[in-house]
Amino acid sequence: MSSTEGPAEGRDPGLQPERTRLAWRRTTLSGTVVAVLAVKTALHGGTSPLGVIACALCCALWLGFLLVAHRRIGVLATGAGHPGLATRQATMAVLCTVAMAACGAVLVF
């Protein structure tokens, strides 16, 4: 084990931070699929004002999720001190998901 690796000193051989980073990426990708499906639903059945609002809200929520994931990936990439996931971030990610589902209910109905 050389100590010249700088921030990667004491690097976990299981690459846990990297795997967690990729998990955030996968989750963002899933969110993207949902957002795209929401846009498709909104455009499909003729554009009503309510549908357009719900669709725009969905896209904004996707951006919110992207921001949370981006922040978390940035923290994991520096690898300094290995701070855990803040509860606020987890709650924000979940709230974005729940609100997306609510927009979906409006779009479907």
Binding site: A23, R26, T27, S30, V33, V34, T97
Partner: peptide
């Protein structure tokens, strides 16, 4: 995150 993906997949399934 895996559970969150499951949730997103269910929501996508709804769409």
């Amino acid at each position: 995150l895996a559970w969150l993906r499951t949730a997103l997949a269910l929501i996508g399934g709804g769409f």
